[in-house]
């Protein structure tokens, strides 16, 4: 049996080959660019200041939206776990946000905010119900017997948080973040494609589409996937370290 990374690399190579064959069969780069041409477009993009400026612009805003969404969801989930009427009040709102198509939010949000801030608001809105639900689930999974123990021993609030609440909530939060980070990148870039803020990745995608630069379109898509995966890995790594530090636990999984 080959190591897992060899199997994965083989799978990637297989699909790249399928893509190459399909591109050769279609024979028109406007419709389907070959992986080689997409790679060529990416190599041309990489050394330009415009490329890094766009990556910085979009990453900053999308991650700001994620951070705000994560912060708010933790606070709201904690409040709704503690206060019943907050839970009753927030429940339909979160359902609504979760069920509303992202395109509706983007178009509606364009009326409220400038295109430059659109991706912040959209990532925030997409992240909020996901992490709210995850944190809520984590809080609900807290062992009531441990909470009784903490009450009997009169453990201070911070110690309860560290020893009981965080170990219960963080695995769910970790999982929620993994999902939410992917969602916020997809929705944030979609917002940029519609809002067209200057200097964003979404704007570059749109330009690639109207100029029929399919190579650039694929290159930018590849960049979005990579940046999204990179931030997800980095964030979850930081979260794992924080969990270990705070709870003494080996990993929040």
């Amino acid at each position: 049996m080959k190591p897992v990374w060899v199997q994965r690399a083989a799978a990637v190579l297989f699909w790249l080959a399928v893509w190459q064959c399909a591109a050769m069969a279609v024979g028109q780069e406007v419709f389907l660019v070959s992986p080689v041409a997409a790679l060529r477009a990416l190599v041309q993009l990489l050394p330009t200041a415009d490329f890094w400026g766009r990556v910085w612009f979009s990453s900053g805003r999308i991650l700001l939206g994620f951070g705000l969404g994560a912060g708010c969801s933790v606070l709201l989930a904690a409040a709704s776990a503690k206060i019943r009427w907050v839970d009753i009040l927030l429940s339909p709102l979160m359902q609504l946000v979760k069920a509303t198509p992202v395109a509706s939010f983007i178009i509606l949000a364009l009326v409220w905010v400038r295109g430059r801030s659109l991706s912040i608001l959209i990532s925030f809105l997409m992240v909020l119900p996901v992490l709210y639900g995850a944190v809520r689930t984590g809080i609900q999974s807290t062992d009531p017997q441990l909470l009784e123990m903490a009450r009997v021993f009169r453990l201070p609030r911070m110690r309860r948080l560290r020893a009981i609440w965080l170990p219960a909530v963080l695995p769910a939060f970790h999982q929620g973040c993994s999902v939410a980070l992917g969602i916020c990148w997809k929705s944030g870039v979609a917002a940029e494609v519609i809002g067209l803020p200057d200097g964003s990745i979404g704007d570059a995608l749109y330009r690639a589409k109207i100029t029929l630069s399919t190579g650039d379109l694929f290159a930018w898509t590849f960049v979005i996937i990579c940046v999204s995966a990179l931030f997800e890995k980095l964030f979850l790594w930081i979260l794992d370290r924080a969990v270990k530090r705070v709870t003494g636990e080996e990993a929040a999984r």
Binding site: F153, T247, E249
Partner: peptide
């Protein structure tokens, strides 16, 4: 007054080691 207790169940913090569980209180 203040209580130290052994419950019917152990009620230990699973992620903490034995010494940390004792130190917690």
């Amino acid at each position: 007054g203040r209580v130290g207790a052994v419950f019917q169940e152990n009620r230990l913090c699973r992620a903490l080691n034995a010494v940390q569980n004792v130190a917690l209180v």
